[in-house]
Design a binder for these strands. Structure first.
Lengths: 128, 128
DNA sequence: GCAGCGTGCTTGCAATTGCAAGCAGCGCTG
DNA sequence: CAGCGCTGCTTGCAATTGCAAGCACGCTGC
C-alpha cells in the first residue's frame, strides 16, 4: 500500500538485522514469522501488520514504536513544547493545581529563553 | 485474531462514536471506511489494520494511539513519575538548569502529595 | 568432482481484510 | 396506507497478508 513507508521500513529492518548479525532465517525464527515473508518485508514487497512488526521488534530487541514510526502508523513526537505539556497534564501523580504550576514554570522558562536567545543548553555529557 | 482485544476495541469505538453523537454511517464516511466494515469492527467481527484505526481516530478526533492501546498494538505508558521526568529531560527548548528546576518542583509536588495522601485530582472536564 | 549446509528468494495457496450492493427495521409525512 | 429517509447489519467478492514447500547460489570438506 504505502510503499514509500514500506520501502524505508524494510531497509530499516534489514539494517537493524545486520547490526544484530542475524541471518534472515535467524531473525524470522526469533520473531516467529516465516523467513520468506520477512524477506518480502525487507524488500518492501509486503506491508506487515502491527502485530508482525511487534514480533520483529521484540526479536531485534528494539521498541515496537520505532518500527511503527518507520511504517508510518505512529508519528514521532516533534511538536516542540507540546510533548512536555501533554506529559505534565497526563501525569497521574500530581493534581490539577500542581499541573498548572508546572506549566507556568515551563512557560516562564520558554519566555526567558526567547528573550535571551536560544537555550544555551549547557547539557554536559556528564548526564550520561 | 486477538478477539479479546478486538472486542474491547470495538466497544470503545462504539462508545466514542456515541459520545460524539455520530451515526455509524456518519463516522464511516468521516473516517473513509465502509459502514458495514465499521459495523463489523464495532461488533468485534473484524480486526482492523493500524491504518484503519488511524482513520477512525482522526474522524473521532481522538489520538490514534488511544485506539492502538485498545487494540493491543501499543502499550500504555505506565511508569509512574518516570515519563514526566524523561519528558522534562528530553525537552529541547529548555536548558539544563531549567530542567533541574522543573524536576525539583515536580519532586516537591510528589512529596507534598505523599504527605497529604493521594492527589485530589480536581481535573475538570473543562480540559476537553 | 560431489554432498551437505547455510543463505536469501520464488511461488502457490489459505485466511483475513475491507468494500459494494443490498436487506430489514424504524419513524415520519402526506 | 405508501413512500421516504435514516439506522445498523448481511453477504459475496477482490485484494492483501502470511505461510509452507521448495529453488538457486555460495562455501566447505571429503
Amino acid at each position: 500500500m504505502a510503499s514509500l513507508n514500506v520501502g524505508s521500513l524494510g531497509e530499516y529492518i534489514r539494517e537493524q538485522r545486520r547490526n544484530a548479525q542475524f541471518s534472515l532465517r535467524q531473525l524470522a525464527e526469533a520473531a516467529g514469522v516465516s523467513n520468506p515473508y520477512l524477506s518480502q518485508i525487507e524488500r518492501g514487497l509486503r506491508k506487515p501488520s502491527a502485530e508482525i512488526l511487534q514480533q520483529i521488534a521484540k526479536a531485534l530487541r528494539i521498541s515496537a514504536e520505532t518500527l511503527y514510526v518507520q511504517a508510518g502508523i505512529l508519528e514521532e513526537r516533534r511538536e516542540e513544547g507540546l510533548e512536555l505539556r501533554v506529559a505534565i497534564l497526563a501525569d497521574p501523580l500530581i493534581n490539577e493545581r500542581q499541573k498548572q504550576a508546572l506549566l507556568a514554570v515551563y512557560d516562564a522558562f520558554l519566555k526567558e529563553n526567547r528573550e535571551s536567545g536560544p537555550a544555551p543548553d549547557a547539557s554536559p555529557a556528564a548526564e550520561d
